[in-house]
Design a protein around this nucleic acid. Structure first.
Length: 479
RNA sequence: CGGGGCGUGGCUCAGCCCGGUUAGAGCGCUGCGUUCGGGACGCAGAGGUCGGCGGUUCAAUUCCGCCCGCCCCGACCA
């Protein structure tokens, strides 16, 4: 059961986050260091995320499949950058069935290699292309510093892997899926994101180009919330993914990969939550409306519960995810706080006065206190609730966007950049050299987040070295 | 992996410095009763190998060593 108070976000954002995850019963610590248990409330949220993404994947022509958890160690070694990037964080299986294995197996940290191996078997001709496969699964990366949802040894995600006949097509796919992520983040999760390209130092191990959606959390730190990579022919060469083109010439494929993980749950929590707890976007919330029945005397109980049951089935029939909190051992006031902490977007109170007036009380989670409370007639309630949920969804996005935009600054010089990244993002001309990027990171702890796709025309002078810069980039402290 | 903090009923912690009868508190949990439109209350209960191993001692939750785990801050990452 919930304790009464959370630390406020301003006094201790990290602790606020930890407690919210635990108290809202999203996840819990597992007995293995760095591992988490995703509890039913958190997993239902993930299932809703999955459904929203999966629908988009199917709409863009992708199909799902499942590849093995174990990958031969030698596979990873076939792509130089890939193995360098991942070897420090691999879990390796050396014993199976009591016998020492001839070749160690790694627990997949990502599946480019084993999927590449399979693609080389499956692809012969340009007629076989493109191959557009996604898989939902779990992966393991042996991280040193972990945090629930944001970075755990094992996490759940989807990884799309596609193979194409041309560079152009593969680059298009990379950006198409980045767009899918952005659309999902903005329209389902109400998390405003910036689409951009990762710097060479920040890109995925083995990619030619990595793209990202970057979101701003409530403490202004940035969170990479999804990534899409153009892999060029790197993995095709490593795994001999080849095809005969129309001219009977043998060519290597161009491949992409893209992923979004349970980390996104962390993004939702840290984007929308307030000092009362979680606020979940209606479109993804496991429970959209919680009904709290209220009765003083026993004589009122039956009438209230009857009305509540009727309303519940009306809302259900309208496709609204609704829960009735009929616990008798806690007071209504306790329930209000409890469900607010769990982020349910809309609360409905039904009591004796409502029976009399044929009304109900509605309280919006995004507007605390009196202001967010309204009394509406029971007739047409499903429509009223549906509209209000849509309005909450919109107001969450508007609020998060306004917050983000008010914390993005365009520093005029390096001194000002140092200042702004202490509580926000810097958007500045950058020569794109690793040296300038490294200097910013060393001196401010802020890393380059991305070079946004959406760029102003023209050019300027690099905020660090003053050399000519063609594009602007975002710099921020990040998770 | 470096620095810091912490491990005592389910949770948060006191006790330990200065070793000594049956180890406490608040919250939570169970039962009964009164409550119920913004975190209710009374009464009666249940619940502990004091993180683990080893050492010192007549005696260790308390002193010493090692180990394990968690949290926070730094180097790496979705």
């Amino acid at each position: 059961m919930a304790e009464e108070k959370l630390p406020t976000r301003s006094e201790d954002f990290a602790e606020w986050y930890n407690q919210i995850v635990l108290k809202a019963e999203m996840a819990d610590y597992a007995p293995v260091r760095g591992c988490m248990v995703v509890r039913p409330y958190g997993w239902t949220l993930w299932e809703n995320i999955q459904a929203a993404l999966d629908r988009r994947f199917k709409e863009t022509g992708h199909v799902n499949a499942a590849f093995p958890l174990f990958i031969p160690m030698s596979f990873l070694e076939k792509e130089k950058e890939h193995v360098e990037g991942f070897s420090p964080e691999l879990a390796v299986v050396t014993i199976g069935g009591g016998e020492k294995l001839e070749e160690p197996l790694i627990v997949r940290p990502t599946s480019e290699t084993i999927i590449g191996y399979m693609y080389s078997k499956w692809i012969q001709s340009y007629r076989d292309l493109p191959v557009l496969i996604n898989q939902w699964g779990n992966v393991v990366r042996w991280e040193l510093r972990t945090k629930l949802f944001l970075r755990t040894l094992e996490f759940y995600w989807q990884e799309g892997h596609t193979a194409h006949a041309t560079e152009e097509e593969a680059r298009e796919e990379t950006l198409r899926m980045l767009g899918v992520y952005a659309d999902f983040a903005i329209h389902e999760a109400a998390v405003p994101v910036i689409q951009g390209v990762k710097s060479q130092t920040e890109k995925f191990a083995g990619a030619v180009m990595s793209t990202t959606i970057e979101a701003m959390m409530g403490d202004t730190r940035a969170l990479q919330s999804g990534t899409s990579h153009y892999l060029g022919q790197n993995f095709a060469r490593a795994f001999d993914i080849q095809f005969l083109d129309r001219n009977n010439t043998l060519q290597h494929c161009y491949t992409t990969s893209w992923g979004l993980s349970t980390r996104f749950i962390g993004a939702i929590i840290m984007t929308h939550g307030d000092d009362q707890g979680l606020i979940l976007p209606p479109r993804l919330a496991p429970i959209q409306v919680v009904i709290v029945p209220i009765f003083k005397a026993e004589a009122e109980t039956a009438a209230v519960l009857e009305t509540v049951a009727r309303i519940q089935s009306e809302l259900k029939a309208a496709g609204i995810r609704v829960k009735v909190d009929d616990r008798t051992e806690v007071t209504p006031g306790f329930k209000y706080n409890d469900w607010e902490m769990r982020g349910v977007p809309l609360r409905m109170e039904v009591g004796p006065k409502d029976i009399e007036k044929q009304s109900v009380a509605l309280a919006r989670r995004d507007i605390p206190g009196r202001e967010g409370k309204s009394f509406v007639p029971q007739t047409g309630l499903a429509a009223t609730v549906t509209d209000m949920l849509a309005d909450i969804q919109k107001s969450l996005l508007d609020r998060a966007t306004a917050f983000r935009d008010s914390h993005i600054h365009q520093p005029k010089d390096y001194a000002e950049l140092i200042e702004v990244v202490s509580n926000g993002w810097a958007y500045a001309w950058w020569c794109e050299s690793a040296e300038c990027e490294a200097r910013i990171k060393e001196e401010t702890k802020a890393s380059s987040r991305c070079i946004p796709l959406d760029q102003d025309e023209g050019h300027g002078r690099c905020i660090v070295c003053g050399k000519d810069a063609k594009r602007k980039g975002y710099f921020a402290k990040a998770y």
